[in-house]
């Protein structure tokens, strides 16, 4: 659609100028409202990021990144335990969710019949729609109730959220691998599993990694699933998932509930760190995908 199509209008007016002017006016108003809507959405993103950056930057220091919370009544300190905890929780969740997700993606795009594949994809979509707070209750009942909170439980809850994202992304990119490539491999006598491992997966690797990174970015910021599974943690760096691990989102949540201004400025510092990490992952994921999608002819 050419960008000037709207301004051309219907040429010489047949029914008088008033009606035509009104139609053009309505058109103009609608164009302006649509532009404003897009502008507002982008502005909200900018405002949130700028607020977090401007309020959080002053808290970021070596001490903030390497120390734990101060003793009661003292100022300073940091969120080292939350940073380490988030890294471990997200890494464990990734190890649990990514391999299974890729296997599901291979099943729905290579092995399953059309109906079965569509059913599995539907289940994944529904799984993606489960509220994360409910995921938290589920994992609490499964792994925590009667025992204690643990990093394992928290990581499992994150993995449940990550799985459909990884699997659905994997399916979408695997489905983009040109049929001709697969068929020529099979025609040369390559077995199906070798075709999948040597031709299909390498071709789609960039997209699969992108999907995994988007999954990581998504769960790194999750609070709700950790609230019941890994939120009662000690004020010290722990690397043992056998006990509850701290995390940046839960730390922000609890700092916000404290009344002191210094807790709030720490919350902003933690929010800045989190948002930086997550936006970086998103940008990285998109860059990888843009690079790799040259290998597969995209459907669109």
């Amino acid at each position: 659609m050419s960008a000037t199509a709207g301004q051309m209008g219907p040429g010489p007016a047949l029914r008088g100028d008033g009606r035509l002017r009104r139609r053009r006016l309505v058109n103009r108003l609608m164009e302006i409202s649509a532009s404003i809507a897009a502008l507002v959405a982008v502005a909200v993103l900018a405002i949130v990021i700028i607020s977090v950056a401007s309020k959080g930057i002053s808290s970021i220091s070596i001490e903030f990144l390497t120390k734990n919370a101060p003793l009661f009544g003292q100022s300073g300190g940091g969120i080292a335990n939350a940073i380490v905890g988030t890294l471990i929780l997200v890494a464990l969740a990734t190890v649990m969710a990514v391999p299974v997700g890729i296997l599901i993606g291979i099943y729905t795009s290579e092995f399953a019949g059309a109906r079965l594949a569509s059913l599995v994809r539907f289940v994944l979509d529904i799984l993606n729609g489960v509220p994360t707070i409910v995921t938290g209750i589920f994992v609490f009942g499964l792994l925590v109730a009667g025992k204690a909170q643990s990093g394992w439980a928290g990581a499992f809850a994150l993995a449940v959220i990550m799985l459909p994202i990884v699997a659905r992304s994997a399916h979408e990119v695997l489905a983009l691998v040109p049929k001709a490539m697969k068929e020529s491999a099979l025609a040369l006598g390559v077995t199906r599993w070798k075709m999948v491992l040597r031709i299909v997966l390498p071709t789609a690797a960039g997209g699969i990694i992108t999907g995994a990174l988007l999954g990581v970015a998504r769960v790194a910021g999750e609070t709700a699933p950790l609230l019941f599974t890994s939120s009662i943690f000690a004020n010290e760096v722990s690397t043992k998932p056998g006990g509850a691990l701290a995390s940046i989102p839960v730390k922000i949540f609890s700092l916000t509930e404290e009344p002191s201004p210094s807790a709030h400025s720490q919350a902003w510092g933690a929010a800045l760190l989190l948002i930086f990490f997550i936006l970086l992952l998103n940008v990285l994921a998109r860059a990888i995908y843009a690079r790799s999608s040259r290998r597969t002819t995209r459907a669109r």
Binding site: L45, S51, L274, I275, I278
Partner: peptide, 19 residues
């Protein structure tokens, strides 16, 4: 612009709540 609107979904809910 499309990417920026999608990034809005990437902001963690706890950060949005704090804001």
């Amino acid at each position: 612009v499309g990417v920026l609107v999608e990034l809005l979904a990437a902001i963690p809910s706890v950060v949005l709540g704090l804001w």
